[in-house]
């Protein structure tokens, strides 16, 4: 084993870019960075969902006072680089918030969320939600508008309010249809957390960069790449699977599959009990 590592390290390219020794030593810090990135991703994405849904409904409104700001927001965010948005929001947030200094230096601001100070975390989340909310809004809007008008009419003709029709008829169908796209946005957002290295948040990429700067070796980046792939590869496969399954359900064979699965499950349960 040691012989193999020694041999690998003796190859210049391997040593500089994927040194097993350096990657191994980087793991604890990279793991911390991964946790920070994952925390940003999960909190950011979960808060983006209601933000995106709100913006989507606003953009579909017939009232221009509601529609125009939403349209402007969505176009502006989707048309500008996330890095610029992060810089504006991250450094603009404290200027806008009264009592920011007290908050940032106070006990709450110092709470650590997956290794990130709360005062940094809230700003990063604000940037992520504002960005991802705009993309999700377009995903939601396209999904809702792809549901046939007859569905809303049928629900309304039964006496449901618009809100009930949305909640029980339109949104469930929409979510089913856009789930793969929503998950793609989740994956994109995860990769986007790397940009927070620019404002000094110790997520995965900044951790790797710090070690790289100390060792003059690129291997920590490759180690970080491995951490990114740990999440993006399986999720990407899941998206492909969901897309295939959706294609089947839209052409009419999904319930059959489901029944088949149920039958198999029942048979297995029977076997187990026997």
């Amino acid at each position: 084993m040691e012989g193999i590592i020694e041999y690998l390290e003796s190859i210049k390219f391997v040593h500089l870019f994927m040194s097993p020794t350096i990657i191994w030593q980087s793991l604890p810090l990279l793991w911390k960075g991964f946790q920070a990135a994952a925390a940003l991703l999960i909190v950011g994405y979960l808060l983006s969902l209601p933000a995106g849904l709100t913006a989507a409904f606003m953009k579909m409104s017939r009232n221009p006072i509601v529609r125009i700001p939403a349209t402007f927001y969505i176009d502006f965010i989707r048309g500008t680089p996330l890095l610029v948005q992060i810089l504006v929001i991250y450094f603009g947030f404290p200027l806008l918030m009264p009592g920011w200094r007290e908050f940032a230096t106070g006990p709450i601001g110092q709470i650590s969320v997956a290794g990130i100070d709360m005062s940094q975390f809230v700003r990063a989340i604000a940037a992520l939600v504002i960005n991802s909310g705009a993309y999700l809004a377009e995903i939601f809007r396209a999904g809702i508008q792809s549901i046939s008008k007859g569905q809303l009419e049928a629900a309304r003709s039964l006496g449901m309010t618009t809100m009930q029709a949305m909640t029980y008829v339109i949104i469930p169908q929409t979510v089913r249809r856009i789930l793969p796209t929503m998950m793609s946005e989740f994956i994109l957002l995860f990769k986007d957390t790397a940009l927070f290295f620019a404002v000094g948040i110790f997520e995965l990429t900044l951790q790797a960069r710090t070690i790289q700067a100390r060792t003059f070796n690129m291997s920590p980046y490759i180690g970080a790449a491995g951490f990114y792939l740990m999440l993006t590869l399986p999720l990407g496969r899941l998206v492909a699977y969901l897309e295939a399954k959706l294609a089947v359900s839209e052409t009419g064979r999904e319930p059959e599959n489901r029944q088949e699965r149920k039958r198999r499950k029942a048979a297995r349960a029977k076997e187990a009990s026997a």
């Binding site: 046939s148 007859g150 569905q151 009419e153 049928a154 629900a155 008829v169 169908q173």
Partner: peptide
């Protein structure tokens, strides 16, 4: 309705 409009889900 002409197009049934059952809720497919």
């Amino acid at each position: 309705f002409q197009s049934f409009n059952l809720f497919p889900h």
